[in-house]
């Protein structure tokens, strides 16, 4: 009888929660000696510290965005390039194919077991002033981004001033005008009431934010090989289930935000995709092969 502590920074109606609950449900059928104790909403800390806790074995499991995970598993970083992942099909081909499998295996170099990927979806641009439809509208905009080189340099390539600040500061900042915009997927935008401080959301679909389910080496190695196989199967199924939920609920969250008075703006994606190319040149030396392999999977 083992209870595993699982942490996530996202709230109780996020895909991560769905994945964790589904995993618990599957385990109770297939591997009843294991159960999951879920700590959502960052109760056990931020993503960085939870990953570290899994490394130390003080936390058994985490579901985290791949963005902070890339500080521990460098090969994951390539997935953070703007406009590299084209659409859902492309994302599945990458994260559920050989490349994704390799990324999960790379996690063991960082002293963790990567189980499966799920997602919170594509990121969108949320702001106040005037509708942003073209690249020119974006010029000089002060945008809060996550602490990641690919994100920072990507937005600089598109002509923005990328600012890294904590979420609470950013939320107050976009309201008071310290910054012009934030960028989050629809589900997180809704969960964080971005509609209260932003009038517009441009559907830029610039980054696909995958979530990775990880388990500590200590917890993993404590299982027999048969149990490991069953556990892996449950984790894969739970993550796939959560991914399906993420895609279905995205429309939902989008509609709810429109009801709250947010205007959704369409953008000329081809123009953005063209403008981002210099970014790929910048990372050619380090990630060239990976970029090519991922691009080859796009239809």
């Amino acid at each position: 009888e083992t209870t595993l502590r699982l942490g996530s920074v996202n709230g109780t109606d996020s895909p991560n929660q769905v994945a964790a609950e589904k995993l618990n449900e599957l385990l109770s059928e297939k591997l009843p000696e294991y159960s999951i104790d879920i700590f959502p909403s960052g109760q056990l800390g931020g993503e960085r510290d939870m990953i570290e806790s899994v490394q130390m074995g003080t936390l058994d499991m985490v579901i985290t965005a791949t963005t902070p995970l890339a500080n521990f598993v460098p090969s994951l970083n390539v997935g953070e390039l703007l406009y590299l992942i084209q659409d859902y099909d492309h994302a599945d081909a990458v994260y559920e194919g050989e490349i994704g499998q390799q990324w999960l295996e790379d996690c063991s170099n960082a002293g963790m077991k990567g189980l499966a990927f799920t997602e919170v979806g594509f990121r969108q641009l949320c702001y106040n002033n005037k509708p942003i439809e073209t690249l020119a509208d974006l010029s000089g905009m002060k945008l809060r981004v996550m602490e990641n080189d690919m994100h920072v340099n990507g937005w600089k390539t598109l002509g923005c001033d990328a600012v890294t600040m904590g979420w609470a500061d950013a939320y107050a900042g976009v309201q008071q005008g310290t910054i012009d915009a934030v960028e989050v997927p629809y589900s997180l935008a809704y969960a964080n009431s971005v509609y209260d401080v932003c009038k517009y959301i441009s559907e830029t679909n610039h980054i696909y934010t995958a979530q990775c389910m990880l388990i500590s080496d200590a917890a993993w190695n404590g299982m027999s090989e048969e149990d490991q196989a069953v556990f892996q199967e449950c984790a894969t199924e739970a993550c796939a289930y959560a991914k399906k939920y993420a895609r279905e609920s995205t429309e939902d969250f989008k509609n709810k935000m429109v009801e709250k008075g947010v205007t959704i703006v369409e953008v000329d994606l081809d123009e953005f995709r063209e403008a981002i190319k210099p970014l790929y040149d910048q990372y050619q030396a380090e990630y060239g092969e990976q970029i090519a392999a991922i691009q080859a999977l796009a239809k």
Binding site: G11, D13, Y171, A191, S193, V197
Partner: peptide
Amino acid sequence: FIFYAQSSNLSVM
């Protein structure tokens, strides 16, 4: 209040 809104889905405003 921002944390409360996050955990309850009430409007921050």
